[in-house]
């Protein structure tokens, strides 16, 4: 059960991250086409949603290891 829960966590957060990055990435490329100097801001915004899957990963590890 813990393994299934961990897998579901990873799937859910993975999809959430991918979806968020899709939105941000598309907008960033669009903005960069007009103003190339927005690259850094775009990059930063682009990797921001990765925190979601990271939390998913930590929860998944906790579920599997049943610690903390």
């Amino acid at each position: 059960m813990a393994a299934i829960a961990a897998a579901l966590t990873m799937i859910g957060t993975g999809f959430a991250t991918a979806w968020a990055e899709k939105v941000v990435g598309g907008a960033t490329v669009g903005a960069m086409a007009e103003k190339p100097e927005l690259f850094t801001k775009g990059l930063v915004l682009m990797v921001l949603p990765e925190t979601i899957i990271l939390f998913g990963l930590i929860i998944a590890i906790q579920l599997v290891a049943k610690v903390l």
Binding site: T40, L43, V44, V47, L48, E50
Partner: peptide
């Protein structure tokens, strides 16, 4: 990711 940790 290293850059992000610094920037964000």
């Amino acid at each position: 990711q290293g850059l992000r940790l610094n920037y964000v």
